[in-house]
Simulated assay, not measured.
Amino acid sequence: MNTNSMQAATKVCHVVAVPYPVYSVGPLIPYYELDCKSSTNVDEMVAGFKISGVRFLWVARDDTYRLQEDCRDLGLVVPWCHQLKVLSHSSVGGFLTHCGWNSILEAGFAGVPLLTFPLFRDQITQCKQAVEDLKVGLRLKKEMGDKTLVTREEIAKTIQTLMDVDSSEREELVKRAKEVQEICQAAVKKGGSSDADLDAFIQNISQG
């Protein structure tokens, strides 16, 4: 190795060795739409809600009209909503979610217990965090994978368990959800951990 090569190698090693702060902003993954028209689980979900007798708001990006026709007696189906505003409303008693990370965070911020229905990838890990670690939700789907069918009877029973105001299980879920809410809201307040990290990040990039 000649002198110039040795100097270059030394510079590379020096750059790699310099410590840099790490800011967690993931997971950054594409959005994968679910095809409601071909999903038997969606039909079972509609039937399960009807059996449960629980009123609901369903955000369905696809096939909204058909679902609204099927659900008109108990629920409202819309193509979009401001999710955090809906979750923060006092009349919302639970949130059925595929366990996308943003949804988990927004439910935590709003203090709403979950019914988890993960399909793939990071959703499965986040379901475990919500149900087993944070203990703020129930598993609507016991087995993982987008092809796993959950029957309408199972769906209705789990929904009723979550929404039963006299249930000790719901009482515990709500208690835990409120504890998570306090943590989340404290993090984003002035001087909280998220606020402090964002300030540190801006300061670092401003200094080059």
Rank of each mutant, 00 (worst) to 15 (best):
N2L: 15
E143N: 04
M45E: 02
L105I: 12
G48K: 00
A200D: 10
P30L: 13
D122N: 05
C36I: 12
C71Y: 07
L96H: 03
H14S: 15
K190Q: 15
C13K: 12
W80E: 05
A47G: 01
P113F: 00
V92P: 09
A17R: 09
H14T: 13
V54H: 08
V25C: 13
L173G: 03
Q126V: 02
K175F: 06
N102V: 01
G93L: 11
G75S: 04
R139T: 00
V18D: 10
S90Y: 12
S39I: 03
Y32F: 14
K190N: 09
S52K: 04
Y23P: 05
P27E: 12
K189H: 10
C184H: 11
G93N: 04
A196Y: 04
Q185V: 06
D197V: 10
P113W: 02
D43C: 03
T97A: 10
V46S: 00
N2Q: 07
Q83L: 04
G26K: 03
F56G: 01
F56L: 01
S167P: 03
F201V: 05
Q160N: 07
Q68F: 13
Q68W: 08
G48H: 02
S103N: 07
L138G: 00
L76K: 10
D199R: 11
L114R: 03
S38N: 09
L119E: 02
M144P: 02
G94H: 06
K135D: 05
M144W: 15
V18Q: 14
Q207T: 11
E154R: 03
V12T: 11
V54T: 11
Y32V: 11
E106W: 05
T148D: 07
S24T: 13
P79F: 02
L140R: 01
K175V: 07
R152I: 01
V59M: 13
S38W: 11
Q129P: 01
T3V: 14
W101G: 08
L173V: 01
R72G: 01
Y31K: 11
K11Q: 14
N4W: 12
S88T: 01
V12C: 13
S39R: 01
I155G: 01
C81P: 05
K189W: 03
N102K: 06
V78F: 14
D195Y: 09
I202C: 14
S193W: 07
V59Q: 06
G53F: 11
D35R: 03
F201P: 06
V77R: 00
Y20C: 08
Q160D: 05
V86R: 00
V150R: 02
G111A: 12
G191Q: 01
Q129I: 06
C81A: 15
T116L: 00
C127K: 09
L57H: 08
R66N: 10
E182A: 11
I183V: 14
N204W: 15
K37F: 14
K142W: 14
A156K: 05
F95W: 04
H14R: 08
L162F: 02
A187L: 03
K50S: 09
W58D: 02
S103R: 06
D70K: 12
